[in-house]
Each structure stands twice: as structure tokens, then as C-alpha cells.
């Protein structure tokens, strides 16, 4: 899976309330609608500045807080191709993989806002084109790569009817 886009940078501990506020997420299952409010409490104009394929780049503990799956779904529906962070909160991590949102763990201090990035997920490569820099990436465990390769857990279950990692 090859991904290309621009970096939008955020800090540490971006919680799921910031990703999509509770005041919207309980009201609808329309994820395109929710996506318009992505990161609204941190950056009110964020959604308007996203170009298809862009990356959210953040510090440590991205996605901490509530278990709302609307968080990765709103990110996917805002046309973000992947989230790149120093580390992820574990429920967000599960939800992202299950819904098919790729996550990349690396040293994000090597990325500035606006940098052009290229990612090859299966090879675990991240290239910062603006800085001509290859950034080492923590590889995803095989189970998660399998779920992502199937297109998320829904597609995995449709295919196998159960968990199948053999």
C-alpha cells in the first residue's frame, strides 16, 4: 500500500474528544458529516485544509480517551490516508486497524508541518520527501497487517465468518 500526502501536525495526547467531540458523535452515524468536525476543538479550520491523502502527524499517545470508533472513522472520512505518531493509545490502535486506517509509529520530530511524505506500509517505509529523509518505522504485527490487508475487520469477517490468522 503506497500512500502520499502532506503532513498536518498536532501535539502529544490528542484524545478522541478532540478528534471528534462527544457533542457530535452521539447524534449521527453519518461519518462524512462527523468528518467535517474533525479536530475542531484544536483547530477549527482543519477539515477545510485537508487534501485527499494527507497525513495527521502527532506526538505520543495519539487517540487516548474514550473508545469511540467514530474517531478513526471520522479521520478516514476526512480523506486522511494514515496517522503517523510517536505512539498510540491502545483502544484507538485497535479501532484504527479494525476500520482499516493505517497507523505508523516513528519519531515524528523528523517531520514538520507541510512536509510531503511517502509511505509504503507493507515494506514499513516512511520517506520525508521535503527533507529527503528516510525515517525508521516500528513494523506492525502480522495479525494487524492481515486485518489491514483484508480492508479491516468487517471484510475479514465477511471473508472468513470468524477470526482467521492461519
Amino acid at each position: 500500500m503506497e500512500l502520499k500526502g502532506k503532513a498536518h501536525k498536532f501535539g502529544n495526547d490528542v484524545n478522541t474528544d478532540y478528534i471528534i467531540s462527544g457533542r457530535y458523535k452521539f447524534k449521527t452515524l453519518d461519518m462524512r458529516e462527523l468528518a467535517k468536525h474533525l479536530m475542531e476543538d484544536l483547530d477549527p479550520d482543519f477539515f477545510a485544509r485537508i487534501n485527499k491523502g494527507d497525513f495527521i502527524v502527532a506526538g505520543k499517545n495519539f487517540g487516548c480517551g474514550s473508545s469511540r470508533e467514530q474517531a478513526p472513522l471520522a479521520i478516514i472520512n476526512a480523506d486522511i490516508s494514515a496517522v503517523i505518531a510517536k505512539s498510540f493509545a491502545r483502544i484507538f490502535y485497535r479501532n484504527a486497524i479494525n476500520t482499516g486506517l493505517p497507523l505508523i509509529e516513528c519519531d515524528t520530530d523528523l517531520i514538520d508541518p507541510g512536509d510531503q511524505l511517502e509511505v509504503n506500509l507493507s515494506q514499513g517505509l516512511l520517506y520525508n520527501k521535503s527533507k529527503d529523509l528516510r525515517i525508521p518505522v516500528t513494523p506492525l504485527p502480522a495479525v494487524m497487517l492481515k486485518i489491514l490487508a483484508d480492508g479491516g475487520l468487517v471484510e475479514h469477517f465477511k471473508k472468513y465468518g470468524n477470526f482467521n490468522f492461519d
Binding site: 473508545s67 470508533e69 483502544i91 479501532n95 479494525n98 468487517v154
Partner: peptide, 20 residues
């Protein structure tokens, strides 16, 4: 432990889940 909606659906269907 807390999970999201897709895990909940998979758990309701299969009675199983993957854990690290």
C-alpha cells in the same frame, strides 16, 4: 478492557477477540 464498535461486533458474533 475497552474496545471499539467493530471489536464489539466481532465479539458478539464469535464470542472471541484477538489480544496482545
Amino acid at each position: 478492557t475497552g474496545v471499539g464498535s467493530t471489536d464489539l461486533a466481532a465479539g458478539m458474533i464469535s464470542g472471541k477477540l484477538w489480544f496482545k
